[in-house]
Amino acid sequence: MRDRDDEDDDLLLWGDVDARTLPKVSLHDHLDGGLRPATVVELADEAGVELPEGDADALADWFHDQADSGSLVDYLKTFDLTTAVMQTEPALTRVAREFVLDLAADGVAWGEVRWAPEQHLAKGLTLDAAVEAVQAGLEQGVDEARRGGWDLRVGQLVTAMRHADRGLEIAELAVRHRDRGVVGFDIAGAEAGFLPARHRVAFDYLAEHWFPVTVHAGEAAGLDSIRSALLDGRALRLGHGVRIAEDLTVREDAGRSYVTVGRLARWVRDRQVPLELSPSSNLQTGAIEAWGDDLADHPFDLLFQLGFKVTVNTDNRLMSDTSLSRELVLLADAFDYDLDDLLTFQLNAAESAFLPLEEREALADRIASGFEAID
C-alpha cells in the first residue's frame, strides 16, 4: 500500500469517475493489515524491531510480495512484523488514527476495524488498555477527518485467534466494551484445522448477550468451516465466505449454463447471510485456486448473479497494496459492472453493518444519495 497520493490514477478511475468519491462501507478490514509502510519503519526504529527493508516503498513491495504466496498460512506470517510494532498504547493509538484517515481518503462512510487484542500484550498492556488505546486513535482519526470535511464513523470488531484458547475471555472483553466503540466479535487466524466449534463456549456467551458475530470462514477451509460458523458461531456474516461456491455445481448444455445450488449454499443465499468478499486478498491466499488464478476467475460474479449478498472488502490494505476504491474498480473491469452494480455492493454492506436498524437505513440513504450525485 503506497501513500494515497502515490496511487496510480488508472487503478482508482471507473470511467471518468474517481472511485474515491463514491461513499462506501468497509466491513472486513484488519487494523494490523492496514499500516502505512512509513509508519512501520518509524515504529520499528522506536521498538528496536528489525525490518527486511528500511525504505518505506521497498518495505511496501516486500509486504505485497511476501503476502502473494498462494497460502493463507504464509500470508499470515507478514503480520508477525506489523503486530511487533503495535505493542504500546502510543503505537496502537497512532496506527488506529492513521487507519481512519486512510478510510476517509478512500471515501468510507462506515468502517468496521477488526483486530486481535491478545496479540498486543508483549510489552505489558492489558486487554482492556489495548482496546482503549485503539479506540482513542479511532476517535482522533474521526475528529480529524471531520475537520477536513469528511464525515465517517467507525467501530471495532474485537477478534479472538482461532488457534488459541482465549475465545471466551476475548468475547467477554468485547461485550465489556460494547458501549465504548466495540460493535462486534470475530475469530481469525489459520482456518484449516480450527473450526469455529472450538470456540463454542465463547459464541454461546455472545448469543446470551445479544452481541453480533462475524466469523472468518470459507477462505482457507471449505464448507465444513462455513457450516460450523453458522451453527456453532451463529455468525450473522461470513468473513470471506468465498468457498461457499464449492456448494454450487455449474454445467453447460447447448451453450447455456445451469447452476445447482447445494443445501448449505441455498441456506446462505436464501437467508441473505452477507459474504465479506475480498477479491485481491482471495487471490493472494489461494482461496479461489479451485476456480483459477486471475480476478476474472473469482466466483464473485457467479455469487452475485445467483442472488447471494455479496460485499466488497480490502481485508489487508498493506499486504494487498489496495484500497476499497481500487477493489471496486478491479471488479468493474473484470466483470463489466456498471454504477448500479457498485451501488448494490455498497447497499449490501450498509444493510449488513453492525449498527442499529435506524442507523443502517440512514447509512444506506447516504450511500444512495452519494451515488446519485455522481450519476
Rank of each mutant, 00 (worst) to 15 (best):
S257W: 14
T88F: 12
V73I: 13
V108N: 08
A217T: 08
V40S: 06
E372I: 01
A190K: 14
I288E: 01
D32K: 04
L206Q: 02
Q135C: 10
G15M: 04
R227K: 11
P274V: 04
V201G: 10
A130V: 08
V85P: 02
P52V: 03
S281M: 04
D74H: 14
L92N: 04
G124D: 14
D365Q: 14
A130N: 05
L127E: 12
F354E: 00
A105H: 11
R263T: 12
D270P: 04
R146Y: 12
Q156E: 14
V182Y: 06
L355D: 07
A136Y: 01
A130G: 10
A190F: 08
E144P: 11
P90F: 13
Q346R: 08
L303G: 00
A96W: 00
F300T: 08
V242C: 03
V158G: 05
E112V: 03
D55H: 10
A190T: 13
L125W: 03
L331C: 11
I226S: 03
A254K: 02
A197C: 01
A334T: 08
N313P: 00
D10R: 13
A122H: 02
D68Q: 02
V25Q: 04
A245L: 07
A19I: 05
F63Y: 06
A265W: 04
A47C: 11
Q140E: 15
F63S: 07
D186L: 01
L283A: 00
L275V: 01
A220F: 03
G167S: 06
A353R: 00
M319H: 08
D8T: 14
R36F: 06
R114K: 11
E276R: 04
F335Y: 15
L12Y: 02
D294T: 09
A197V: 07
P356H: 12
W62A: 10
D232G: 09
L27D: 03
L295F: 01
A47G: 09
D5A: 15
T285M: 00
F354Q: 01
P196K: 11
E132N: 15
K77I: 12
L318E: 11
D80V: 06
D45I: 10
L152A: 13
D247F: 05
G255D: 05
L318Q: 13
A287C: 02
T311H: 03
L303N: 01
V215C: 12
R153I: 04
P52A: 03
A19T: 08
A188D: 07
D106A: 09
K123Y: 05
V158W: 00
L35I: 02
T159E: 13
D340S: 12
L264T: 00
A332H: 12
V158R: 00
D61N: 04
P274R: 06
E289A: 13
A202N: 04
L11M: 10
D247I: 06
E172I: 04
A362E: 02
L59W: 06
D74A: 12
Q346P: 07
W115E: 09
V134G: 03
L357A: 15
V41M: 09
V261N: 01
R237S: 00
A174V: 03
H216S: 07
A164S: 15
D16R: 14
T214F: 03
S280V: 09
V329T: 05
V108L: 14
S352V: 08
R147S: 14
R366M: 07
R94M: 10
E372Y: 05
P212K: 00
L101T: 08
M319Y: 06
